[in-house]
Structure formats: C-alpha cells, structure tokens
Simulated assay, not measured.
Amino acid sequence: MKVKIANNAGFCFGVKRAMNMAWHELEERENGIYALGPLIHNKQAVSKYEDRGLKTVNELNDIPSNESVIIRSHGVGEDIYIQSKNKGINVIDTTCPFVKKIHSIAKEYSAKGYKIIVIGDKDHPEVIGINGWCNEDAIIIKTLDEIDQLNLDANEKYCLVSQTTINLDLYNSIVEKLSERLNDIVFKNTICSATKERQFSAKELSKEVDCMIVIGGKHSSNTQKLVNICRGIVPTFAVETKDELDINELKKFNIIGVTAGASTPDWIITEVINFIESI
C-alpha cells in the first residue's frame, strides 16, 4: 500500500495566523480568554485550546465588560466591533486578511449604492460576517440554480463577492449566468489563493490514486468542498481523525491519496498517514 499526500493540505495561512495569535494570548493570561464562536472548525484543535484556558461563547453578551474577546479567522459583522467598544470589551482580531478584504469590498460598494451578492452558505460564519458589512442586506446564493429564483433588476448596480472557500468552477458558472442577466455588475473573485491551490491539488491527486482520504471537521466548509471534488473522481472517505478509518475498506486499495482541510492540524494528518502506513 502506497500513500500520496496532496501538495497543499492542512492549515492555511489565515488559520495558522489565527491559531498562533490565540495561543500567544493564552500564554500571556492566567485567567484565559474568550472566543466568539469556535476558533476553527476542528473540535480536536479547539479542545486543546480550551484546555489551555480558551472560553468559547456564542454571544457577545456572554462576555463580561473589560474582558477580551478573540474574533476568529472567519470574521464578524461591523456591529460586533461597535458593540464590543460600547461594552468595554477588548478585541483581539484574528480575522483572515483575505476575509477582511471582502469586508472592505462589501462596505465600499454598498456605500456606493451597489447591491451586494455573496456566493456562499448563508449559515456559515464567514458569510454572516460579510453580510454584516453591507447593512445585512446581501443577496446570498449557494448554487447556480438559485439565480433563476432571484428577482434581479437589470437597471440596478450589483457587486458580486464569494465566500473564500467556494469552488472556482461554481464561481465561474455564476459569473457567466449573471453576466447574461445584468447590465451593471462588478465581479470580485474573493476565493483565497490557498483554497484554489488546495482544491487543484486534491483534484490532481485524485487522478493518480485508487481512493482519497479527506481529513477535516464535519462543519468545515472548505473540507466538504474537497470531499465533493474528490468524490467526483475516485472513492473518497471523509474523516476527522484516524479512528474513523476502516482497515478492511482501505485494504481494497493499492494507492491512497490524502488531503486535509484548512482547519486540520498537522498532528492529525500525521496520525492518519501513520495509521495507513501501518496497515
């Protein structure tokens, strides 16, 4: 049995930066620190940080005044910064720079009178955050078919952005379809470079192996997109840790490919590889 690893797998720049910043803050404080929502979509990694003193909350109201809060890499809406300031809560902002760029675009074009269209999952924290920079008024679509259900005005101005982890093929298809329907639309490809590289690497590796293993959190958007890409080419197993792997299933394959989502720590990837190689 041979194992091949995708060229781009595991923590992306934004997640690595956020995790390093959060760990630094934990080391500086005896009483821990709050995080608004799970730091990343990987419960094993978050658990390690919580053991060190990270306190995860879902609402700003759960944080006492004069405390500090970590804004995770997914980012938040503008109102969170305003509310934090009003409550006297210090913000440690680990928002990914790629996501920050989308916030700036959404705010700028919304102020100019453009209607913002976001390609993404309306329930994903990144998309919720983006919507919070354009008056909670964005049109959010997840699939190409949803465009047909939109009441778009050809005489209005629109600006399109996307969740950083959206599949590039989906983005291009939506751009093509909206170009046919609208006269005045600005397209901003805000898929981050790390996402494009990770998806391309996973797709190429899938062509060289008998099966793929995609490691990452069940709630990780970028991980699930990797799963869908690989499944379109070769049998694919989606797991969070090595404990979910089935030895009898894996024995059917000679060459196994491995990739991982942007929120998957190196130590979990290493455990999976070691497990496969031990079969």
Rank of each mutant, 00 (worst) to 15 (best):
L182W: 13
C211D: 05
A138C: 13
L168Y: 14
N172C: 02
N155I: 05
T164K: 03
I141P: 08
K251S: 10
Y158P: 03
N167R: 02
A202W: 01
F253R: 01
A262G: 10
T143C: 10
E197Y: 13
Q224C: 02
K122D: 06
D137L: 08
E136S: 13
Q163V: 14
T164D: 06
I191M: 10
Q199S: 11
L182A: 04
F200W: 12
F187P: 04
V127K: 07
I166T: 15
D137T: 07
V227Q: 01
S162D: 11
I191H: 07
A154C: 08
D243L: 09
L205N: 00
N228A: 01
I191Y: 11
N172H: 11
K225E: 10
K251Q: 13
S162A: 15
F187K: 03
M212W: 02
N167M: 08
I141V: 15
L250W: 01
D184S: 13
E136P: 07
D266H: 00
N222F: 08
D210G: 05
E176P: 01
I147V: 12
E126S: 11
I256G: 00
Q149D: 15
T164E: 05
G257R: 00
G232N: 01
C192R: 04
N135D: 15
N167L: 06
C211I: 05
S179C: 03
S162L: 09
K142A: 11
A260K: 02
I128H: 04
E156A: 15
R181I: 15
I128E: 06
P235W: 05
I139T: 04
S173T: 04
A262E: 08
E126D: 11
R181Q: 14
G216M: 14
V258Y: 00
N254L: 11
T143S: 15
Q149K: 09
V239R: 07
I256T: 10
K242L: 09
E156Q: 14
D137E: 14
G216D: 10
N151F: 05
A260S: 14
H124Y: 05
D123R: 13
D153Y: 12
L226I: 08
T223H: 10
K252N: 14
S162E: 06
I141D: 00
T164H: 11
I185E: 06
E249M: 08
K252R: 09
I191N: 04
E204M: 13
K218V: 14
T223L: 08
V161M: 10
I166R: 06
E180G: 02
C192I: 03
N183G: 09
I174R: 04
S263D: 12
N167G: 06
I215K: 05
A238M: 12
S162M: 09
D184K: 12
K207C: 02
V161R: 02
S179E: 09
R181Y: 13
G129F: 08
D243P: 11
K242R: 07
G232L: 02
G217C: 12
E204C: 09
E156P: 02
T164R: 06
L178E: 03
C211A: 13
N151E: 15
E197G: 07
F200N: 13
L250H: 00
